[in-house]
Write a protein that binds this DNA or RNA. Structure first.
Lengths: 337, 337
DNA sequence: GTCGCGCTTGCAAGCGCGTGCAAAGCGAAC
DNA sequence: GTTCGCTTTGCACGCGCTTGCAAGCGCGAC
């Protein structure tokens, strides 16, 4: 099957009339090669279609240039947006992204991390789930860096990037009160991740401080369908809420669609809604959703920067954790105060 | 920095009291190892946290297990759905996905393919753009398989997966006529890819055959905003179209939103709309869009199957090209005939 | 006891590359 | 002409792994 193999540095060396090390050095930034040999090597390489074998290089340098992205639900707007930003910035930093899909099953993330280890990835970025402690230990012992995004794990070593979910919950509660809402509600999924729960707790805390109670309902995933179901449940209550904070934009979209088309409610006149993530659909005029923007770019920048600098072990403990601010994007789903 | 390295087969061999080859064979399916040594090796490996180095294995076997996915606009619903399916199926086939983002710039795809070559990927799957002929030649010469999805290139060698775009255009034209539409229109982007143009040509051909003219307007990308602009242009015409086929669902979403919220039109009573892709949003009740479903699963299956079988060179030429059918999903954006 | 067969196992070569080390080349200073 | 210092170059080793080959082993048949 492998009829013609790839061309090796040896062949380039022969064609250029130099030694193999000269070829190697030509493609190693900072190595000592005269301008003349470099030119001859490059010509030969071009003619033969030579490309450095990064598998072999990774073997020698003990640094593969691979960064493993571990994600579930890639097809989701927020996830794919973050993925996009991460891969672009990784590419700019000279790394290449390896992509591993996870599902909800036990050990799924662990298997993904093992894949990363097998390919000697320089680092892994985890966007979903949480790996077993023994695996992360293995990664760190092996010299592999780890980044946890919105995962809120407490073990030392990995870089942890989180948002101010709790504070955001508070800010939006205030906005609802200003808009004159009397009955608040929080629509959450059953996933129970720290970010979702943070938003919930912050929202409830601020609302009670402002003298209002919050009805909380949790159901299903963080997707559109779950939002519809939550609307079903909440809008048939005796005391119908008139200000609903949905834990994600997708939930909010489902919620709004059900509220309008099934319950005939007008937004924001009869019902105020807010979401979280600022996915593209939130800006569509069918939704025009007031929401918090995930600082996707900043998240990616932080992650890549930490990887590029090698993530020094000796830096203060606090530096392993970053908290970013989610910006409130005002649109039309909440009445003006 | 690399304080503790990864554990190697040598160390496992020493701990298990066997030779290094025995370790290697234990992790090579089909190799000859006695049950006893296998057990001892596995125990030692477990204790030490050993994982086969796939860089080194790839070097020997001349088969890295890496498949490179080359995509632009990952954050788009259709693209991310396809990406998801591909990665899942690749994982199930024992491969791992390497992800390279491209942009609109010249040579972007070529650079991506070079990355694939550097990592000695077993194959590359191209979802966006079209590489230079010289690069694809290099890939094929190097023994790297190539899959082009919806790209419609004519050079031999790569597997080409396409849809029946032309026929789909025809089918939807008939549907519009049955719904009693009098003035048809096609809303396209300026991208001009073969798939988009195929839909356009098929739609026009069928419509003229049915005795109707088609207004064609092209603008911008294939996204939501372009759809709004297209609506702006088309719905202000003297002869306003009452049946519009949008080249993609995102265009359709933008078009519908503008038609409703800006022009106060009711869909499907005053205006029938159809799209293409069947992204998740098409099923949302705000849109309830009649559209063609990309056979995402079938596309991925075909691609992975071809890679798994090694894509024999000696098979008949026709086998290098696959045409799949886009299923028409009936929803509520076209009146019943 | 001997032979032959089949299964295991270790040896050693080599995949393509980076890099330390020493030799070579070269120019300037004496 | 000799010496010194710097840059360039080739050699050879090793990264962690697979695999052909031949030796080792156990066992039944003769």
């Amino acid at each position: 099957m492998p009829s013609k193999l790839f061309v090796s540095a040896q062949e380039v060396a022969e064609r250029a009339g130099v030694s193999r090390s000269a070829v190697s050095r030509t493609f190693t930034p900072g190595a000592s090669v005269s301008a003349d040999t470099r030119r001859r090597v490059l010509e030969a390489a071009e003619a033969l279609g030579y490309h450095v074998n990064h598998l072999a290089r990774g073997l020698m340098r003990n640094e593969s240039g691979i960064v493993c992205l571990i994600v579930s639900d890639v097809a989701t707007p927020y996830r794919s947006a973050l993925l996009r930003e991460l891969t672009i910035q990784l590419q700019n930093a000279g790394k290449v992204a390896m992509f591993v899909n996870t599902d909800r099953s036990d050990g799924s993330v662990d298997r993904a991390l093992q894949q990363a280890i097998r390919y000697r990835a320089d680092a892994s970025i985890i966007l979903s789930g949480l790996p077993d402690k023994s695996i992360t230990q293995l990664c760190l012992r092996s010299g592999q860096r780890l980044v946890l995004i919105n995962r809120d794990d407490d073990q030392p070593g990995p870089l942890k990037i989180n948002l101010d979910d709790y504070e955001s919950g508070g800010r939006i509660a205030t906005a609802f009160v200003r808009a004159g809402c009397k009955t608040l509600a929080f629509a959450n999924s059953e996933a129970g991740t720290p970010s979702l729960m943070g938003r919930e707790r912050g929202f409830i805390a601020a609302a009670t401080k402002l003298g209002l109670e919050v009805v909380v309902e949790r159901y299903g995933s963080t997707g559109y369908e779950a939002g519809r179901v939550l609307a079903q449940r909440m809008l048939t209550r005796a005391e119908r809420p008139d200000g609903v904070f949905c834990a994600t934009d997708l939930l909010a979209c489902g919620f709004m669609d059900a509220a309008r088309h099934q319950f005939g409610l007008s937004i924001p006149d009869q019902l105020c809604v807010a979401g979280f993530d600022d996915i593209e659909q939130a800006s569509w005029s069918s939704f025009n959703l007031t929401t918090f923007a995930q600082p996707v770019m900043a998240i990616a920048t932080q992650a890549v920067k930490w990887l590029a600098t090698g993530g020094h072990e000796d830096e203060p403990e606090g530096a392993h954790s970053v908290r970013l601010k989610a910006e409130l994007i005002w649109r039309g789903s909440i009445r003006k105060g």
